[in-house]
C-alpha cells in the first residue's frame, strides 16, 4: 500500500512561480489598502496586541540588565544624586512660588482684558520601551496606550523640551515620532525676537531644519527656538531646539538653518505625554469648516434665487 503513494520528493503543490504571483498580489493589495484607505487598522491593532508577549520577551534581557545595573549603583553616586536633587528641589520651589503669584496676576489681567484663560495641561509619565526598528524613521515605542487615554496627535516632552508627537496608538503601547523624523513639523518661534517659523525634521543626523526662510532672516547661531502654540497641540513656550548653523547660498533665496534639539531624544527613558484635547480641537475645526460651508451655500442659493427672480 505504501508503495503506491508517490514519494515525498515529488509532492510539490503549486509551482513557485504561481505562489510568487499569488503572494505578491496579496501584499500589493495589502499595501494599497493600508496606505490609502486604512481599512486594516483594527486588524493591525489586534495582531499587534497578540504579538505583545514576544515584544516583552525580547525586551526582558535589557530590562534585567538595567535593573541589575540600578541595584549595584554605588552608595556614593546615590548620595550625590540625592544632594543634587534636593538642591534642585529648593531652587525650583522658589521658582514655583514666584510663578504661582505671576499666574494669579496674569489670570487677573486676562480677565480684565476679557481674554480667554490659558488652561494648564495634564500630563502622563511614559517609559520608552524600545526604539523603532526602521533605520529610515525616527520613532520610539512607549509603554502606555489607548487604555491610559493617550490619543494620536498628543505632544511628548521631557524635562528639557519637546521630543515629538504620538502618531499611532495601540491598546497598551503607542508610537511616538521624534521631532527629527522627516515627517514631523512643529510650529516654532525664535525666543529672542518672536519670529514665527516651522521646524522640520531632518531625517538624518538628529537635527531639525528651518526651510523657506529668506536669506536675510534675523536668526543667529545660538538662538533658542520654542513652540509658538498656535497649532493647539504643543503648548506655547516649550523649548524645541538651539540654532546650530545659519548658512546662506548665493544660488538660493532661502537660508539653510540647522538646529539641534534641546531635549535628550537619544538618551532618556522617561517622557511626559501632554494630554491635550486634540480630539475636541479637531472636532471644533471640522464644525467651523462645515458651518462656514453651509453659510456659503445658503448665500449662493439666495444669490441664485435673486438672479432667477430678476430674469423673468
Amino acid at each position: 500500500m505504501d508503495q503506491q503513494q508517490a514519494p515525498r520528493f515529488f509532492i510539490h503543490g503549486p509551482s513557485p512561480f504561481v505562489r510568487l504571483i499569488v503572494f505578491s498580489t496579496l501584499s500589493l493589495a495589502l499595501m494599497a489598502s493600508d496606505s490609502k484607505f486604512s481599512y486594516l487598522t483594527p486588524v493591525r491593532d489586534a495582531l499587534t496586541v497578540a504579538l505583545q508577549p514576544l515584544q516583552v520577551v525580547a525586551n526582558s534581557p535589557f530590562v534585567l540588565y538595567k535593573n541589575i545595573g540600578d541595584y549595584f549603583t554605588a552608595q556614593q553616586a546615590l548620595r550625590n544624586e540625592l544632594y543634587r536633587l534636593k538642591k534642585q528641589a529648593i531652587f525650583q520651589s522658589i521658582q514655583v512660588q514666584a510663578m504661582q503669584s505671576l499666574k494669579g496676576e496674569n489670570d487677573q489681567l486676562r480677565t480684565l482684558m476679557q481674554a480667554s484663560k490659558v488652561s494648564s495641561q495634564q500630563s502622563r509619565l511614559a517609559e520608552i520601551m524600545h526604539t523603532g526598528r526602521d533605520p529610515f524613521s525616527h520613532k520610539v515605542i512607549v509603554n502606555i496606550g489607548a487604555e491610559n487615554h493617550v490619543l494620536a496627535g498628543q505632544a511628548v516632552v521631557d524635562g528639557a523640551g519637546v521630543i515629538g508627537q504620538v502618531t499611532r496608538v495601540f491598546p497598551y503601547s503607542s508610537e511616538v515620532t521624534l521631532l527629527t523624523d522627516k515627517t514631523l513639523s512643529i510650529p516654532i518661534q525664535v525666543e529672542r525676537n518672536a519670529l514665527r517659523a516651522i521646524s522640520f525634521g531632518h531625517g538624518r543626523d538628529n537635527v531639525v531644519n528651518l526651510p523657506y526662510l529668506p536669506a536675510n532672516v534675523d536668526i543667529q547661531k545660538g538662538d533658542k527656538l520654542v513652540t509658538s502654540g498656535i497649532d493647539g497641540i504643543y503648548p506655547a513656550g516649550l523649548a524645541v531646539a538651539m540654532v546650530d548653523s545659519v548658512k546662506t547660498n548665493v544660488s538660493s533665496p532661502f537660508a539653510q538653518i540647522i538646529a539641534k534639539p534641546m531635549a535628550g531624544i537619544q538618551n532618556h527613558r522617561q517622557v511626559l505625554i501632554l494630554l491635550s484635547d486634540t480630539e475636541n480641537l479637531v472636532a471644533k475645526d471640522i464644525q467651523q469648516v462645515l458651518s462656514a460651508d453651509a453659510q456659503k451655500q445658503s448665500d449662493l442659493k439666495q444669490k441664485s434665487e435673486k438672479g432667477n427672480d430678476a430674469k423673468p
Binding site: M31, D34, K139
Partner: peptide, 11 residues
C-alpha cells in the same frame, strides 16, 4: 513589529 506599511516586508 516594525510598524511599516502592511505588506512591504512581506513582498
Amino acid at each position: 513589529v516594525t510598524g511599516d506599511v502592511f505588506g512591504q516586508n512581506a513582498l
